[in-house]
Simulated assay, not measured.
Amino acid sequence: MSEQELQQIEANVRFALDQLGPLSDVEFGLNEESVEWVEGFIERQRCRPDFDLEQASGLVGVLGSFLGACIASATGGRWHKLDQDRGWGVLLPDGSTVFPVTKVRKQFRDGLEGGETITSLYQVAVEFVATGKLQAARKGSTDQ
């Protein structure tokens, strides 16, 4: 685990809070309401005629770090790096890992109309995965 990479994630989160908070119309912080606002921000950016996903890798990193911090804050999870290919994710209390940077990149690429929503990842991670409800539901469906 690279301490430098983890420090960059933390710097990205601070940057998102400092820069996006004043632009938003919500109580901006590490919460679901802010995730919903960022989802709309992503949609507004990707619809701009000059938007280029290849040029937006820094923005993807900042917003993915922010999303991950929101999930970690709500679940008691923590950042960890699985391997070089999958990169950094948030390890949830049930042992599952979510990849917020990947999800942000997918929403930028495919948008809400393509089924990509960072709010959905947040809600599923917080309400189902981290609580063990998803695993229990899977187990229940295989017992029948």
Rank of each mutant, 00 (worst) to 15 (best):
T117N: 14
L30Q: 07
G95A: 07
G40R: 08
A74F: 04
P100F: 04
Q135K: 14
F41D: 10
V38L: 05
T102L: 12
F108S: 01
K81V: 05
G58E: 11
D85Q: 15
T97N: 01
Q4D: 12
S24Y: 04
E10N: 13
E36Q: 14
Q45F: 04
N31Y: 02
I71D: 04
R138C: 09
D25R: 13
A136Q: 14
D18F: 14
Q107F: 00
A56S: 15
G115R: 08
R105I: 03
G76Q: 06
T102I: 12
G114Q: 00
E127T: 11
R46P: 01
G77D: 00
R14W: 05
E10Y: 12
E39W: 04
G76N: 10
P93L: 08
F99V: 08
E39F: 03
D52N: 13
P93K: 10
K133P: 05
R138F: 14
A136M: 07
L91R: 08
Q84K: 14
R46S: 02
G40A: 05
D50I: 05
D50P: 06
G114L: 00
R78K: 13
P93I: 04
L67A: 04
E32N: 09
G64C: 04
A137G: 10
S34F: 04
L134C: 06
F51I: 11
N31Q: 05
I118T: 01
L82D: 15
D83I: 06
Y122F: 15
L6A: 07
Q123N: 12
V62S: 01
L30C: 07
P49I: 03
Q19Y: 12
A130S: 09
G61W: 05
G21T: 09
F28H: 07
V60F: 03
A56V: 05
G114D: 03
L91Q: 07
Q135C: 07
V38R: 00
V90Q: 02
L63T: 00
E27H: 13
L53A: 12
A74C: 01
G61H: 11
E33C: 05
N12Y: 12
P49D: 10
V124S: 10
G21F: 09
R86G: 06
E32Q: 14
Q19S: 15
D50R: 12
L6W: 10
L92R: 07
H80W: 14
A74K: 08
V13C: 07
F15S: 12
W37S: 10
R46G: 01
Q107I: 02
V104Y: 02
V98L: 06
F41E: 13
D25Q: 13
Q135N: 11
R46V: 04
E36C: 09
P93T: 06
K106W: 06
P22Y: 11
C47A: 15
R46M: 03
Q4M: 12
T97S: 06
F51T: 04
